[in-house]
């Protein structure tokens, strides 16, 4: 857990403006993607995972809680949105709402069960709950088991934006990502975020000041799950399917990996981490099974040499808060 606090460099004033500059650069880069000839599908996919990793990071990086079942939010929201779009013929915005609310509800239920556990027990119970859900989704008819929900219509967002046009879809996904990202940034830098940091730093002291810490952790967990779900709903429009891989425990592992590679407890780290991992999967796809081995190796290198992650190391070097 030391890595978490190591990344938290308190540089109040300068930190804010640094983050602002970084945000502008990131947004500018993402805005011009369609002009660069980079495969937009890849970037859209990466954006969904980036938001997912950011949501996960809110929980571990700022709440100090390691969830090893975050794929359940991604998958659940995905199934809900896919089903609403395909079977009920809902509009995209309603589909996203249903998926995100589904993840929020899941957050409340699993959060109430898991939140009292500490450390490794919390990780284990979230893993167990997500495994439980995996088998539920494997068995229930609406998910179509191994096949998943395929051929999902993308439709018109707010009746205007044609999501089957790649360029429109790209900017809608980007807008969704930025919205989620800013929400997370705000939560981290809110009165609530301050309490969360205090709890992570010294829980007994927070309790002795009269904070009912479980309630704060629960809210962080629900927020994190809801935003992870939002990412899952967006992803449906990109992948046009919802399948069991998104609920599988290996997906939960990948989320952890992305966040670690980018930098736990940093604002931009999870975004960078998601792009690195998705790019690897994309460009190393030719190596087949070896992708997993290479990923594993990178993970090991990461833990051994730059424990703070890419952004964490940069922030530490320049003594900035990113």
């Amino acid at each position: 857990m030391t890595t978490i606090t190591e990344n938290a460099i308190p540089e109040p004033r300068r930190g804010t403006s640094d983050a602002m500059i970084a945000f502008v650069i990131m947004t500018a880069l993402l805005l011009i993607v369609p002009l660069t000839g980079v495969y937009p599908f890849f970037v859209m996919q990466a954006l969904c995972f980036a938001l997912l990793a950011c949501a996960f990071n809110l929980l571990i990086g700022y709440g100090g809680l390691l969830s090893f079942g975050h794929a359940m939010f991604l998958g659940t929201a995905g199934y809900f949105t896919a089903h609403a779009l395909k079977v009920w013929g809902f509009t995209p915005e309603l589909g996203i709402l249903i998926g995100t609310l589904g993840a929020a509800a899941l957050g409340v239920i699993t959060g109430l069960i898991a939140i009292r556990r500490q450390g490794i027990y919390f990780a284990m119970i979230t893993l167990a709950l997500s495994q439980l859900l995996y088998f539920v989704y494997l068995q229930t008819p609406f998910t179509h088991g191994e096949d998943g929900i395929q051929g999902i219509p993308q439709g018109f967002l707010f009746g205007i934006f044609n999501l089957s046009k790649p360029i429109t879809l790209y900017y809608v996904i980007l807008a969704g990502f930025l919205l989620g990202f800013l929400l997370i940034y705000r939560a981290i830098n809110s009165p609530f975020g301050e309490v969360l940091k205090a709890i992570r730093e010294n829980e007994p002291r927070a309790i002795s000041l009269g904070y009912k810490t479980d309630q704060y952790k629960l809210l962080a967990y629900i927020l994190s799950g809801t935003l992870a779900g939002f990412a899952g709903s967006l992803k449906v429009f990109v992948a046009q399917n919802a399948s069991l891989t998104d609920v599988h425990w290996t997906m939960s592992g990948e989320i952890v990996l992305m966040t670690l590679v980018g930098g736990l407890g940093t604002i931009f780290g999870p975004v960078v981490g998601a792009f690195v991992i998705i790019a690897m999967q994309q460009y190393l796809a030719g190596f087949g099974q070896w992708v997993t081995v290479i990923q594993g190796a990178i993970f090991v290198i990461c833990v051994l040499t730059f424990r703070r992650g890419v952004i964490g190391e940069i922030a530490h070097y320049f003594k900035r808060s990113l």
């Binding site: 606090t5 938290a8 460099i9 308190p10 109040p12 929400l183 705000r186 939560a187 809110s190 009165p191 609530f192 975020g193 301050e194 309490v195 940091k197 205090a198 730093e201 010294n202 002291r205 927070a206 000041l209 009269g210 904070y211 309630q215 704060y216 809210l219 927020l223």
Partner: peptide, 26 residues
């Protein structure tokens, strides 16, 4: 709270008394 400044340490206590501690949107 080691990585909070002295001011922020005290503020955490003040904040508990005066509420708004759950406001994640502000």
């Amino acid at each position: 709270f080691p990585h909070l400044t002295a001011l922020e340490n005290v503020r955490v206590a003040l904040q508990r008394q005066h509420g708004a501690s759950f406001d994640f949107w502000r």
